[in-house]
Computed example of a mutant assay.
Amino acid sequence: MQNSRRLNRNSVKSILVVKQHNQLGDMLCTLPLLASIRKSFPYSNIRLIASQDNYRILNSPSEKYIDELLVYDKSTPLKFSKFLLNLKNRKYDIAIVPSTFSFSRTSHLICYLSGAKFKVGVKSADSKVNKYANYLNVKADFEWESRKLHQVDRFLEIGRIIGCEFSEQDRNSVRLTFSRQEINSAKDFFRMHFGKNGRKIIGIHTGAGKIQNRWSAANFANLMKMLYEKTNCIFFLTDSKTDTDSTIELINNLDSGFVRENIVFDDGMNIRILGAVLSGIDLYITNDTGLMHVAAYSGTKVISLFGPTNGYEWAPIMKHNIFIQSPDRNINSISVDSVFKNALSLIYE
């Protein structure tokens, strides 16, 4: 670790966190880090740089862990120039690049260009040298893989370079904070689509960015039939612009009458309102995808399914969440019966 001893915590007024990548799940896994920074520097302004694809999930004045969002936009020279001007219109005491599985030249350049006195990040991770570490002046070496450390805990360890301590209870209590308007929109959606019939509401997400991370539509369809027969539940089917094919495949595996009577679709709603809706359902069953993290940080019980990716590294960390890891890295080796049994345990716990 280098140069962190010169940091006077009481003099820190402005902190920049650089997270301009597109992955929604990666962004949400940094939420406990942002919370730990807020706890350690309660009177500092915290500014987060996010991408055009993932900034919306935190784009609300109700979010208590950040004060400002700066969207990284390089789509045109003019927009990139405006981004740089907005970046440099502030004097930063600390800039942090929370990198855990890859090192981005862009992130480190943004950190350097911020002009922050303390530029914080990773010197090496699991013996992989960060070749952009020369842009940092407060950095440390980390060993994560041998400890099978969750991504959330990796981010928190980066925060500890500047003294951001966060207990296990702290990290497990971090949640998205929805505005009154977002909560009311969710309530309106519930009244319109779910009524007051007392049926359990189970969310289903069949998609994932990579095909090898998708449990088959046939498996999801069989699971839904079993859950309906056992609980008389109603299903809330979430979708995204990359998941249309898997959603259509699921519908094709179900009787049209079943779909009409027992499935509510999200209709492409705003992601924060979707999070508020998810906070009110009984269970969410999903592949390893960004909405898995949205559901978990909304306070929903989640069953997450993992094939080639590691559940110990990416699954939701909160209580009342279960991840099921394929025994052979093939996600379709996860049996419908095992998901069904775990679903019942969470629904009726």
Rank of each mutant, 00 (worst) to 15 (best):
N222E: 14
L250M: 00
Y43C: 14
I273R: 07
F41C: 01
P42W: 06
K210T: 10
Y112D: 07
E68W: 04
K117Y: 10
E349V: 09
N22Y: 01
S81Y: 11
S185D: 11
K225D: 00
K187V: 14
D239F: 11
I202R: 07
H320C: 04
A116N: 06
R5V: 13
L283F: 02
Q52A: 14
V97F: 00
N262W: 06
Q169T: 12
K148R: 12
S99T: 13
F306E: 06
S179P: 02
R47A: 09
D93N: 13
V174C: 00
E313A: 11
M192G: 11
N252E: 15
H108A: 00
S102N: 15
F80Y: 11
D170G: 02
K148N: 14
P316F: 04
G268C: 02
M224K: 03
S44H: 09
G290Y: 01
R160Q: 09
F194V: 04
H193M: 08
I183V: 14
K196S: 15
I183G: 03
G25F: 06
C233L: 09
R171K: 15
N287Y: 03
D243P: 01
R5Y: 11
L109I: 14
W314D: 03
L109N: 05
H205S: 12
L305T: 06
S298Q: 01
A217S: 14
F118V: 02
K88P: 06
L223S: 06
E261T: 09
S246L: 07
R90H: 14
R105G: 10
R90A: 13
M226Y: 12
E165G: 03
F258P: 06
K91E: 12
L84D: 08
L109D: 05
S167L: 02
R272I: 04
N59A: 13
N213G: 04
S279H: 04
N137H: 09
H108L: 02
D53R: 14
L274S: 09
D288I: 10
D239Q: 15
L156T: 07
I263A: 09
V120H: 02
R199S: 12
T286E: 00
F83C: 09
S36F: 00
C233A: 15
I281D: 04
T177S: 11
R329C: 10
N134Q: 14
S338K: 12
F83Y: 02
L84I: 15
D67P: 05
E182T: 08
S326E: 00
K91M: 11
L274I: 10
Y43F: 14
I204G: 07
K139R: 12
G121F: 03
T300P: 05
G311F: 02
I202Y: 05
R272F: 00
H320M: 07
C29N: 14
Q20H: 12
A221F: 00
D53N: 13
M1K: 13
I322S: 02
D337Y: 13
Q169H: 10
G25V: 07
A276Q: 03
Q169R: 14
Y72L: 01
L31D: 00
G163E: 06
Q2K: 15
E157Q: 15
S44C: 11
V277M: 05
T30P: 03
I211Q: 09
L34T: 04
I57M: 05
D141R: 12
Q169L: 13
K148A: 08
T309M: 06
I37E: 02
K19Y: 00
P327G: 06
V336G: 08
G159K: 03
F236G: 01
I162K: 05
